[in-house]
Design a protein around this nucleic acid. Structure first.
Length: 575
DNA sequence: GCCGTTTTCGGCCCGACTGTTTTCAGTCG
């Protein structure tokens, strides 16, 4: 069993226990454990084999450690089987309906025998739900709407997609005269690869006019809730937007609070409590009996300063070790978009790109890049009319001409060479040897067994002419799972062979992800952030890669293409 | 179920909003 499978078991345990009405802190312990495993770059199965002490992991105690060992050794968990014998699995889907939590879902199951979403809809249509204790006609309607919603959307969108919506709402709210300060918080601000909803924060005294203004935004489908300080709306796309309106003295505290993450805030508030302080979205307070004295809250940094902590970059606020940094000078200076001076993975009209070499070069130069690599597909990628040796050499002649013509930017002769299904590279070594830069990647045979696909990539890493592995997991967020590759083995081989690993900045890829980039940093493997552009517009995705890198805690030093080509090529063992 | 310099029991972040209630439970973030 791999980490994700074990994490999924714990998540299911948490759902089932919650449904049963178990101690909420026990439920949380399972969720924390699940999350801890997902954030772990090392293979849990390997740790169990080596008889490592799993209780050293934060959030994993004696009990969860034993359950992990059981799962690894037997592939199943008796306690999970017992729970599933008591509760039909379909019932868990009920809890995912907005407005239905464990308590209400449990009542519906026990009183009406409802086990599926279809049965739930029938019960609502028959108006049976409204007669249950604690329910009413409005709740019944909320549930009906929730079912339709769950069927329609419910998926988190790419950060890039969220960003487009954010920009439009931001502009709309800016036009409201009552708005003094405006910020976007939540997972969007933390730069997560996907975003579930949007949190807008406004400093204004005239609350009603701000809420009215949001209600007038073109895409608002309906208003879910509206109170004295908080309003929630749903857009036509299904995206939920929350708005909080707070006074100036609370703006920083609210920004801190709504940026999260939840796990980060739990730790922060607990630390405050130890000091006799209380942190909420209204500010930092000194608690003395029934008295609460306001200490800070206007600026976000003031909230952290009240606990003698540095103001953490939002990307690090996941309770994944950021609290180890106790002063500003300890904080890593995270990578910024301007640090990137090169983009070493892009396509042209020679294969499946939309623009010519010259067009791509001009666009790269406009974006301030100092050097780029043209890396069209190799011949195996027949759908994209991949290049054979002859066509590739013709392209390289063209690149020589371009380099003679343009100034201020260097164009490298590159190739995205496929790693073949049976192993080995799609082009012979003597051709690869003539390239300045070779990214190796898997496009075919993605469903192979772990060992086979891992061996293919290890083979590529042992090829003396390969520079880097592109999109090392092949995942497409929300669309396609990563291949079964053993990434730890890949990283060890990259380290041993002096190769780079790519963080592909395409918003649907973003692999290596934050957890694995952090692991690569630990091992001292330089990351190269590339656009994989298939058009001029495609060059603009680098900023998404930068966000992912920041979440991994990467600095300019950890990223290869922040260096000059001369300095960068020294990082790679090639030839 | 986890955790520990008030440590092996007794805590575990905190508040807004809604609907169904006559003072609060459930849900959400």
């Amino acid at each position: 069993m791999d980490n994700r499978e074990i994490a999924a078991v714990f998540e299911k345990m948490a759902d089932l226990l919650e449904f049963q009405g178990a101690n909420p802190f026990r439920v949380r312990a399972y969720r924390n454990g699940s999350r801890r495993l997902q954030d772990l770059p090392d293979s849990i199965a390997v740790l169990v084999e080596q008889e490592s002490d799993l209780t050293k992991l934060d959030g994993i105690g004696k009990d969860l450690a034993e359950k992990i060992a059981t799962l690894v050794k037997t592939g199943s968990l008796p306690q999970l089987e017992e729970l599933l014998a008591e509760i039909p699995e379909g019932v868990l889907a009920l809890m995912r309906i907005p407005g239905l939590g464990p308590k209400k879902a449990s009542v519906i199951y026990k009183e009406l025998g409802v086990e599926t979403l279809e049965q739930l809809r029938e019960a609502c249509e028959a108006e049976k739900v409204r007669d249950l204790k604690g329910f009413g006609a409005k709740t019944e309607k909320t549930i009906m709407d929730g079912i339709a919603l769950a069927e329609r959307a419910g998926e988190r969108v790419y950060w890039a997609t969220a960003d487009e919506i954010v920009q439009r709402i931001h502009e709309h709210l800016q036009n409201c005269k009552a708005v003094e300060q405006l910020a976007v918080a939540g997972s969007y601000r933390r730069g997560r690869e996907t975003v579930g909803d949007l949190d807008f924060l406004v400093d204004a005294s005239d609350v009603a006019s701000v809420m009215d203004h949001l209600g007038e935004f073109d895409d608002v489908a309906d208003v879910i809730a509206r109170g004295d300080t908080k309003m929630s709306v749903r857009l036509d796309s299904g995206m939920q937007v929350d708005l909080r309106v707070v006074p100036t003295e609370s703006f920083g505290a609210a920004l801190q609070y709504f940026t999260g993450s939840k796990e980060h805030n739990v730790v922060l508030r607990s630390m405050a409590k130890d000091r006799g302080l209380k942190i909420n979205e209204w500010g930092v307070f000194r608690v003395d009996g029934d008295n609460e004295e306001y200490l800070a809250g206007a600026q976000e940094a003031d909230v952290y300063a009240a606990l003698d902590l540095p103001c953490y970059p939002p990307e690090l606020r996941e309770n994944r070790g950021e609290f180890d940094y106790t002063s500003k000078k300890d904080l890593p200076k995270l990578l910024e978009l301007d640090d990137l001076v090169a983009d070493l993975h892009m396509h042209t009209t020679a294969t499946d790109g939309k623009q010519t070499i010259r067009e791509m070069v001009a666009a790269a130069q406009q974006r301030g890049l100092k050097y780029i690599a043209i890396t069209d597909h190799s011949k195996r990628v027949t759908m994209a009319r991949g290049l054979d040796a002859d066509r590739l050499r013709t392209q390289w002649d063209e690149i020589d001409k371009v380099n003679d013509e343009v100034e201020g930017i260097l164009v490298l002769k590159g190739i995205e060479c496929d790693i073949l299904e049976k192993g080995g590279m799609d082009l012979p070594d003597d051709v690869l040897a003539e390239a300045d830069w070779v990214v190796a990647s898997v496009h075919y045979g993605q469903n192979q067994e772990r060992q086979q696909i891992t061996d293919r990539i290890l083979g590529a890493l042992e090829n003396r002419w390969v520079s880097a592995i592109a999109h090392p997991t092949g995942r497409l967020i929300n669309k396609r799972d990563r291949y079964a590759v053993d990434l730890e083995a890949v990283m060890q081989a990259a380290k041993a062979n002096g190769k780079l690993l790519e963080l592909n900045a395409n918003p649907a890829r973003l692999d290596l992800d934050d957890v694995h980039c952090a692991r690569a940093k630990q091992l001292g493997i330089p990351i190269v952030i590339n656009s994989d552009a298939h058009s001029i517009h495609g060059l603009d995705v680098l900023r998404y890669g930068v966000l992912q890198a920041r979440r991994a805690g990467l600095t300019a030093k950890d990223v290869a293409n922040t260096r000059s080509w001369k300095a960068m090529s020294k990082l790679i063992k090639r030839g």
